[in-house]
Amino acid sequence: MSSRTEAAPGYRARRTLPLRVELVRQLTRRRTLVMAGVLAALPFVLLTAFAIGREPGSRNGALTLMDTATASGANFAAVNLFVSAGFLLVIPVALFCGDTVASEASWSSLRYLLAAPVPRARLLASKLAVGLGLSLAAMLLLPLVALAVGTAAYGWGPLELPTGGALDAGTAAQRLVVVVAYLFVSQLVTAGLAFWLSTRTDAPLGAVGGAVGLTIVGNVLDAVTALGHWRDFLPAHWQFAWADVVQPRPEWSGTIQGAVLSVTYALVLFALAFRGFARKDVVS
């Protein structure tokens, strides 16, 4: 008897679990809609805060990005990115990448997907691609809504810099696109952590919370100046390197180092996720 297993007529592994199907499934989930609502609401919350409070201004003669929030729509969008980069934007990445596999296990549907049969690598690739796509969409949603709200409230104009000078509106828009791209790349570490944990546990909250918790630990360690140059190996150390891009003469060294570090960690974590899941005994 031949030990070779023949595939069913017409079966093509690459056609199983199409990205379109997985994307529709994830888009229609309540947590996706709630996360989109939270991100879209942040610009309105800040707009209200500036409206009922006093106008932002310099403190002790030193201007910050927050102090220029009402100068133009571009400034308002940059401030929204600044206040959300450290924590808020971490949540959708951890949610979309950490909930994706673990939720199937918690619903006891993961084994049925694999019995369809969907190859394990194909299943992970589809879920990872959709998770990263939704994470990028979340990061685009916030600045786009903020730019629209800020322009309606404060007008379309140049991006005024706290250090002096300004970037014209066209250049400012291009720099903000670069900032969003860098923020997405810098969050790949969180995505990798969440995705790896999602393949190791049947509890979605554990995967999402674990990724967010480890990200917070990284931020805490980066604040420990006694670590010296060891902090250069922490992704959190480079999370605001994008500020050097929003200058009359952009400085790229920090963003390049941060991007390389983040991609390196992410690739290792993604590889661990695929390797571990390929050998995992799936019973859920």
Rank of each mutant, 00 (worst) to 15 (best):
Glu6Ala: 15
Pro9Val: 05
Tyr11Val: 06
Arg14Thr: 10
Arg15Pro: 01
Thr16Ile: 00
Val21Glu: 15
Arg25Phe: 06
Leu27Asn: 03
Arg29Leu: 11
Arg30Trp: 12
Val34Leu: 15
Gly37Lys: 06
Val38Lys: 03
Ala41Glu: 04
Pro43Gly: 12
Leu46Phe: 12
Ala51Leu: 14
Asn60Phe: 14
Ala62Glu: 15
Leu65Tyr: 13
Thr68Ser: 14
Ala69Met: 13
Thr70Arg: 10
Ser72Lys: 03
Asn75Arg: 08
Val83Lys: 09
Ser84Pro: 06
Leu89Gln: 06
Glu104Ile: 04
Ser106Val: 00
Leu110Val: 03
Leu110Lys: 02
Leu113Asp: 06
Leu114Ile: 10
Val118Pro: 09
Val118Phe: 07
Pro119Phe: 13
Arg120Leu: 03
Ala125Arg: 06
Ala125Gly: 11
Gly131Leu: 12
Gly133Ile: 07
Leu134Thr: 01
Ala137Gly: 01
Ala137Asn: 00
Leu140Pro: 03
Pro143Ser: 07
Val145Gly: 08
Ala146Pro: 10
Tyr154Met: 13
Gly157His: 02
Leu159Ile: 04
Leu159Cys: 01
Thr163Asp: 13
Thr163Asn: 14
Asp168Arg: 11
Ala172Asp: 01
Gln174Phe: 14
Tyr182Leu: 14
Val185His: 08
Gln187Asn: 14
Leu188Ala: 01
Thr190Met: 12
Thr199Ala: 12
Arg200His: 05
Thr201Ile: 07
Asp202Ala: 15
Val208Gln: 11
Asn219Tyr: 14
Asp222His: 09
Leu227Pro: 00
Arg231Ile: 04
Phe233Asn: 05
Ala241Cys: 09
Trp242Gln: 04
Asp244Asn: 09
Asp244Leu: 01
Asp244Thr: 08
Val245Pro: 07
Val245Leu: 15
Pro248Arg: 01
Pro248Ile: 00
Trp252Thr: 07
Gly254Asn: 04
Gly254His: 08
Thr255Cys: 11
Thr255Lys: 00
Gln257Met: 05
Leu261Asp: 12
Leu261Arg: 05
Leu261Val: 15
Tyr265Asp: 07
Leu267Trp: 07
Leu267Asn: 10
Val268Met: 04
Leu269Glu: 04
Ala273Val: 07
Phe274Glu: 08
Phe274Met: 02
Phe277Val: 03
Arg279Ser: 06
Arg279Val: 13
Asp281Asn: 10
